[in-house]
Amino acid sequence: MDLILWRHAEAEDLVHGMDDLARRLTPKGRKQANKMGTWLDSMLPEGCRILVSPSTRTIETVQALGRKYKIMDELAPEAKPEHILAVANWPESRDPVLIVGHQPGLGQAASLIIQPFQPQCAIRKGSVWWISQKQHAAEGLKTYLKTIVAPDLLPR
């Protein structure tokens, strides 16, 4: 199974009285999302399920990918890492899953998989962490971090 965690791109700061779910991407965030969306579109396998938080900033981020996605309330900003992994059906899913969400939940979910003794990994805004599991004849099921990509490392 492949689990791809994509943190939303840079968004407006939360100001007093503002609904956190309504925060939009900044111009820089739109550029980050476009760069990462282009890269992901070329890399994601066919049949990848795309699951997105209901926040405006995650929806604007995933729209840069140009693929169908499903909004999941369980992926809202306060999502617990166990819920994120359950929505992805980790590690039982046969299909790859892309989750577009928030810190600290995404980082905590990554930590549960790849580094269980650290409370969370820091996933930068707009970045992707791609985690894979492969069955090896001699070694059994192995989990590894396939790649980490930040939007500022991608070509314009």
Rank of each mutant, 00 (worst) to 15 (best):
V97N: 06
D20A: 15
H8I: 07
S127Y: 01
W6A: 01
A137F: 10
V15M: 14
L44D: 13
T147F: 13
T56G: 00
D95C: 05
I59T: 05
T56E: 11
A86H: 11
T26C: 13
M72P: 00
L5C: 13
R7T: 03
P45D: 06
K80W: 03
P151E: 04
Q63K: 14
A11C: 08
P77I: 12
I123G: 01
A22S: 14
Q103H: 02
T58S: 06
D13P: 13
P45R: 12
K31P: 00
D41K: 14
P155L: 06
L21F: 12
A122N: 09
R67N: 09
S42M: 08
F117Q: 12
Q133F: 00
A109T: 07
A22N: 07
Q115D: 10
K35D: 04
E46C: 01
I84D: 01
V15A: 14
I113Y: 04
V15I: 15
K146G: 02
A137M: 07
D73L: 05
L21Y: 08
L75Y: 01
Q115L: 12
Q63N: 13
P54V: 05
I113H: 00
Q108V: 05
P119E: 12
Q118N: 07
L112Y: 08
I50R: 10
F117C: 02
K80L: 08
I123S: 04
G101S: 08
T147L: 15
Q108R: 15
T26V: 13
G66A: 09
W90C: 01
V100W: 02
M1H: 13
M18N: 10
A11W: 02
R24G: 01
P91C: 07
Y144W: 13
Q135I: 07
V149R: 02
L14G: 11
W129P: 01
C48Q: 02
Q135W: 06
Q32P: 01
D73G: 06
Q103W: 03
G29D: 13
L65K: 08
E74D: 14
A11S: 15
A76F: 03
K125G: 05
P119W: 02
L51Y: 03
M43C: 14
K68W: 04
H102E: 11
A150Q: 04
I99M: 07
V87S: 10
R49Y: 09
S53K: 03
S111M: 04
E60D: 09
H8A: 09
A122G: 00
V128W: 07
E10H: 15
H102I: 11
A11P: 02
M43T: 14
D73H: 09
R30I: 08
L112A: 04
M18E: 15
L153E: 11
H16V: 15
E78W: 03
G47N: 06
W129S: 06
A110I: 11
